[in-house]
């Protein structure tokens, strides 16, 4: 341990340097610490098994839990709210607008009604966050991003998409090839209800084959550009291609 040479005189005589009257007996303090370290290591080794049991238990408990307290426990099996800014403005039919700009033939401004009038697609897939929570088989409905790109008409040398959001800070990216997949939606409904503000409504992106940070909330801008610009979390160390481990990276998985 760091036994530094002391400047100045030693503070003797002092209990610190004499044999400790209390420094005898079993080293229980150290054992408590090592025991906790051992428990931590055992926890890591058995985590996959324990987690399954824990989720089963929570699922059973939430059936009889009227208070909703089980939602606070670790891995509650539900969505969690993430925002990178302090407060996010609320938008609805009266003031929501989705702007499609950049390397397109026809720049577009869609209102909510416009988007609702377009052909709707449904994608049912798991929502998986990098922070360990997952919600299985979530239905999303909305307009295929490919349809919106076709409507605007991608110009050369358009090769990537940059998404911006009306929270004023978040951004995301996809290559044009990824953006044209049939399981990438400009989503209006989630779980058969209009997407609420807390879930990124009224319009969010849903990129089914990738981690959920790729599915930008509060979507307000789609810009076609010539090469990928990393999004908000990607500038902070996340992978630009956020594929899920079991994702089909080539074709259209949906």
């Amino acid at each position: 341990m760091a036994r530094k040479p002391k400047p100045g005189p030693e503070p003797e005589p002092n209990s610190d340097t004499e044999p400790e009257p209390e420094a005898e007996g079993a080293p229980v303090g150290r054992r408590a610490m090592l025991g906790m370290l051992g428990a931590g290591a055992a926890g890591l080794a058995t985590a996959p098994y324990l987690q399954r049991k824990w989720e089963d238990f929570l699922a059973a408990a939430s059936q009889v839990d009227a208070s909703g307290l089980t939602g606070l426990l670790p891995n509650p099996g539900g969505f969690r709210y993430y925002s990178v800014v302090g407060s996010v403005p609320h938008k609805d039919e009266t003031n929501y607008q989705l702007r499609v700009t950049g390397l397109v033939e026809r720049p577009r401004h869609y209102t909510l009604d416009h988007l609702r009038a377009m052909p709707q697609a449904r994608v049912v897939h798991d929502v998986v966050c990098t922070d360990g929570w997952r919600v299985e088989k979530v239905p999303f409905d909305g307009v295929r991003l490919a349809d919106i790109l076709d409507d605007a008409g991608v110009r050369s040398p358009g090769a990537a998409i940059r998404f911006t959001c009306f929270d004023g800070a978040y951004s995301e990216s996809l290559t044009l090839e990824q953006a044209r997949r049939s399981d990438v939606l400009v989503a209006l409904n989630m779980q058969d209800r209009p997407i609420s503000h807390a879930h990124g409504g009224p319009v969010r992106l849903y990129v089914a084959p990738m981690y959920f940070y790729k599915s930008a909330k509060w979507l307000s801008g789609i810009s076609v550009i010539d090469k990928v610009v990393p999004g908000y979390w990607e500038e902070r160390g996340y992978a630009v291609d956020g594929w899920l481990n079991d994702a089909d990276r080539r074709g259209n998985a949906a």
Binding site: S15, E22, V28, G29, R30
Partner: peptide
């Protein structure tokens, strides 16, 4: 904690905390 290890009084108390006597 690490900086505290430079203090003899802190180290002495760590020794006290570590050991369990009969009265504990």
């Amino acid at each position: 904690f690490v900086l505290g290890l430079g203090s003899p009084a802190f180290r002495a108390d760590l020794r006290r905390i570590n050991r369990f006597s009969a009265y504990d």
